[in-house]
């Protein structure tokens, strides 16, 4: 996994609550057996008309948002299925940071496993970001995971909270499986004493 320390990125918006993983990556694209190449299908039914023409009503399609690395959206982002194809698609499209008032559990967890930082902010702070981004073409944010801060050139500065263990894993690009295997001895002892349920 790519370590995540700081990110300076263009910000784009998705102004909807309860965006489910079926929208992030529709089921017809789950048949691939690789982890890569999902970005082209991200938000497919919203981004495209008839699967080909970009939908001009989909905010993210505007030229000014091209190349965005940070997505600001509304509550309960990523609800629904456990498909890790959702973070794979977001990452492949170019997002390494997501900001919302809340995320669904499995999705939130899946993001960290793929080097994406999901940040929870208060509803008001998210609203502020929506307003600033819309008012300022080219609006960028700098995310500093070491300091746990979000800053913008216009003086905006927010702090954020993230679980310490997850933060260290992201900062160092640590692989969970490697970490767990350090406890091999304990796993073996557990297996020796544990009666299966």
């Amino acid at each position: 996994m790519e370590p995540f320390r700081t990110l300076d990125g263009l910000v784009t918006l998705l102004d909807l609550p309860n965006v489910d993983t079926d929208q992030i990556i529709p089921k017809q694209f789950l048949k691939r057996i690789e982890r890569t190449g999902f970005g082209q299908f991200l938000f497919y039914d919203w981004r495209f008309i008839d699967g080909t023409r970009p939908n001009p009503d989909f905010e993210m399609n505007a030229d000014r948002y091209r190349g965005a690395g940070i997505l600001v959206t509304r509550a309960n982002f990523g609800c629904g299925s456990s498909r890790e194809h959702a973070p794979w698609a977001l990452l492949d499209y170019g997002f390494r940071c997501l900001i919302a008032p809340s995320f669904a559990d499995i999705f939130y967890n899946n993001c960290f496993k793929n080097g994406i930082l999901p940040i929870r902010l208060g509803e008001d702070q998210v609203e502020t970001l929506f307003q600033r981004v819309r008012a300022t073409p080219g609006f960028r944010l700098t995310i500093d995971l070491e300091k746990k801060t979000i800053t913008a050139g216009d003086g905006l500065a927010f702090g954020f909270e993230v679980d310490e263990f997850r933060r260290l894993c992201l900062l160092n690009g640590l692989d969970d499986i490697g970490l767990t295997l350090q406890h091999e001895e304990k796993i073996r002892r557990y297996e020796a004493s544990h009666t299966a349920a």
Partner: peptide, 24 residues
Amino acid sequence: GALAFGIGTSEVEHVLATQCLLQE
């Protein structure tokens, strides 16, 4: 009365490799 929950593919790999999961 089981503790049963859904996981992502990285965690599927984790369970296959270690029979354990890191969980909050």
